[in-house]
Design a binder for these strands. Structure first.
Lengths: 327, 327
DNA sequence: AATGAGACTGTGAGCGCTCACAGCCACGCA
DNA sequence: TGCGTGGCTGTGAGCGCTCACAGTCTCATT
């Protein structure tokens, strides 16, 4: 920096000002500095800057789910890429933190609360995840992806309108003439689990029967397959099923095929997420699209606001029905 | 730090030593410092430390592929998670960098070369990616995932033994009595493209015919489907096909089904990667497993060695045949 | 008893930046 | 002429750490 100052014929202070917005820097000085920087190949030392500003210009992307379950979900990729890019636009880097096991959670928690990062994007499906409390208690700026059950009031978050998405799908199934519509829900301690079930109930009203509802304990293909198998026992007369995630729907498809039911002729299948599997399976899934790119952008926006001292906010984004072959 | 020093009754220097391995620190001092740290809730300021050590304790994970093509690959998740965790064990954080477009590549290149990170893990399928040269020229410690075509000599890398994997698969197909074995290769400017084709040729020797080989321009499901369709025209008599990636194999399966060929009865299909799609499709894919967790560990090990001043090395890891239903 | 080696400790400088402050100048206004 | 105002600039302190160095103290060796 002293070199640049010497070459440009100004002081360190002026360089610093030029680098940080250029307020109160004359045009000729600005130009001389620009040239000097180019000539010397100078690049700021972010560590030195961070040392005084107490800002790291980085945020953590915390994946807090046991065993990389979430990692199996192809949607997650999209979210991660979206956040990285949205942050890059602000010259902020994303550091990835995985908090699967209890030890990992502790280490991530410590990492985030010790000022290594300016804030955190939290992806965690289950309610009661202690990391939410830990981060919130320590005053770390956090925005969650999906409604943070148990922290709706005090944590910023952005979520897709799960409930409405479910309504759209079930409505669609009914409009196509399906009469006995079952559902496979996600775990009921996750927002996707309760909300999508809620939407199902909204549409069906008093037509809902317990035997038509099966809850999977995780959002995996295997869990979906098991749930569908169970459903075929409790409700062999079903002619449609709304599955709360595409991955589970892929499993349901396999179970149906094994049972000799044709999709969509005998049983219509509706998924949720519009993840990559939706077009990989046969038949391709009719599903509900979450606006993932927008979700990531909003998450980043909220987080930057939070870091900027603004109060936590929540954003709910609309979902959209995608018609393919399974319904 | 001064607080800790005061409480523990020692000097800053001793604290620093205690924090960095504890050499030349007496047991009582060590203990006093431990207590003082706990009492004061002290955490080191990584920025201050980095400022003097010139080490950031972080590495970049560079995803350099246009349009998030690689991102579509479920394998990528596993690699990313593996690297994050392997690094965490060394108290090093992973920062994610996406260099899809040309501008992004420039920005990532600048970011990495300006000392924000101590090194980089590079995931890029195509040869001739300028980022390889840029990073190598600037002397940044880099280890690539997969053979870095054009930089085999000067860049560290770890790769699966693609060629041998392909051999295993083709050999297996032949052992099962298949006579007319075709192949769908990946792009020939990628290591997976050339090596897996090489393995195919190794086994088939002079039985290879041009009409049995089709090259896809990308590793996607759609490209696999298109390639299979083409193959059914040039070689309608085929009774097996080795597809250079699971994602493409999923596409090939769809094309075969559309053409009325049964898998595996009429046509046996062999994939490559053992990625998540392998068990999602019907029938489940017989494929070649890449030891992804081990690949990530090795990448991290090589990178740390490199940062430590050691010369670049290459590691080739064995692959393994996974038998399922498609062959 | 003198000496040297080795373990341990404190001190000061400095990593590269920002920020508050004070100083300078030119200008407009009374 | 005097004074205030605002744009621009340089200066010094300090962010929180590490590292080299110089010192102290202990103990075995001569």
């Amino acid at each position: 920096m002293d070199d640049v100052a010497a070459v440009a014929g100004v002081s360190r202070g002026t360089i610093s000002r030029a680098l940080n917005g250029g307020r109160n820097v004359s045009a000729p000085a600005m130009e001389a500095i620009r040239k000097a920087i180019q000539q010397t190949g100078y690049v700021v030392n972010q560590h030195a800057r961070s040392l005084v500003t107490q800002r790291s210009q980085s945020v953590a992307f915390i994946l807090s789910e046991p065993q990389g379950l979430l990692f199996e979900d192809p949607n997650f990729n999209v979210l991660l890429a979206g956040c990285t890019q949205a942050l890059a636009a602000h010259d902020i880097t994303l550091v990835l933190a995985i908090a699967g096991s209890k030890e990992e959670r502790k280490r991530v928690s410590r990492f985030v609360t010790s000022g290594h990062v300016d804030g955190a994007l939290l992806v965690s499906a289950h309610s009661g995840n202690p990391i939410m409390d830990e981060l919130h208690d320590r005053g770390v700026p956090v925005v969650a992806c999906g409604v943070p059950l148990g922290h709706e009031r005090d944590l910023a978050y952005v979520a897709a309108d799960d409930r409405d998405g479910a309504r759209q799908m079930v409505q669609y199934l009914r409009d196509r003439g399906r009469r006995t519509i079952a559902t496979i829900t996600g775990p009921l301690d996750t927002p996707g689990g309760v909300q999508r079930l809620g939407g199902y109930q909204d549409v069906l009203g008093d037509q809902v029967e317990d035997r038509l509802i099966v809850t999977a304990d995780r959002y995996t293909r295997a869990a979906g397959e098991a749930a569908m198998t169970r459903l075929l026992e409790t409700a062999p007369d079903l002619d449609a099923v709304f599955v709360a995630s595409d991955l589970m729907a892929a499993g349901a498809l396999a179970a149906l095929r094994r049972a000799g039911r044709r999709v969509p002729e005998d049983v219509a299948v509706g998924g949720f997420d519009d993840s990559a599997v939706a077009t990989t399976v046969e038949p391709a899934l009719t599903t509900i699209r979450q606006p993932l790119p927008r979700i990531s952008r909003e998450m980043v926006r909220l987080l930057l606001d939070l870091i900027d001292g603004q109060p936590p906010a929540a954003v709910i984004l609309p979902t959209e029905l995608v018609r393919r072959d399974s319904a």
